[in-house]
Computed example of a mutant assay.
Amino acid sequence: MDSAEALASMPFVFKTREFCACAGVKPSSASRSLRAAAAEGIVSRVGRGLWQRSDSEAPVAECSTPHPFPPAWMNANECLMDAAFGAAPRRMSHLMALEAAGVPLVVGPQLSFPHEHARTAMPLGITVFSEPRDRVCLFAARLTERTWMSSPTRAAVETAQHDVAAPLWDERIAWVFAEDGGAILDAEEAVEISDALQMRAGLRRLSSIADALRRLAASDPGGSLGSVPDQWANIVTARRGDAWIRLRRSMRAPLGPSEAAWVDSERKVLWDRHPRALAASLMT
């Protein structure tokens, strides 16, 4: 079979090795053919060893529940995930799920997979998280046969727990508390998530943000912070034996309370900037 015929028989997203087998060529020859096809706009490279056809549309994904994503994107994403990760369950997670819940932000795809599948391939522009298989579908809504999406509350807790979804994730959480009043989040569910998924550090960070904003709002009743829900500020405190944690692990680490810009002693959370700076960021 020649290259043109082989391409025409490929699924919407396919691997280089699949093209090799169909065309009966070596990987070096397949790569040259696919690069030539990409130059002509017939295919596009979407990841290492992954290609997407430009001359056809993705098959329609059968969705189990309404979702906020454009159907064309959802169809293409399902094909990409199936090609890259096979039949493994996956979850749209972290800030991607918060964005889907209505938090104003722009973020690339962030998905969580079972440990054994998370590094099978790395499609371009996708942030991949890994976790035990039995946790992938917990506290999440099913979108398709294999794709789930974190509940807004799980998205907030896991974002705060991992602190790697985006450099300014704390500003988006602050928006949820200050502008939305925490309406999209469920405090009782957050406690369940903290216990079931061992994400207590994330819960402490969320509570610390809520408490700091509540204190600022109390000192400036006519300000712009609105009504920060007390339940989130009071949802958790540090236990005996808890280590100090940083609010943002990605920032330069304060070595102790004396070096932090703000100290939350009740939850044992160290801030690298004063909460006023966080509140000011909501206005920009």
Rank of each mutant, 00 (worst) to 15 (best):
S93A: 12
L185A: 03
A166W: 02
A6W: 03
T237W: 10
F69Y: 15
V176F: 05
E158R: 13
W271L: 07
M149V: 13
M199F: 07
A233K: 12
L111P: 02
R146I: 01
L143D: 01
F113P: 03
S219T: 09
I235V: 15
R135L: 11
E57S: 02
R276Y: 06
G202P: 04
L7A: 03
V106M: 12
H115L: 12
L34F: 10
P221H: 13
M96V: 02
A201W: 04
A165S: 15
P123C: 09
L213C: 07
P89K: 14
E5V: 08
S44G: 02
V128D: 01
R172A: 08
R91K: 14
S207R: 11
Q198Y: 05
L270N: 12
L270G: 12
T65W: 06
S207A: 15
T159R: 11
R214P: 03
F19V: 01
V228T: 10
A36Q: 05
I209Q: 13
E116T: 10
A253K: 14
C20K: 00
P275R: 10
P114I: 11
V176T: 13
F113Y: 14
H94L: 10
D2C: 12
W271P: 03
R146A: 02
P167T: 04
I184A: 06
V164H: 06
I184E: 04
E99M: 14
L50P: 00
D230C: 11
F177M: 15
S150R: 02
R48C: 00
I209G: 11
W262F: 15
M1F: 09
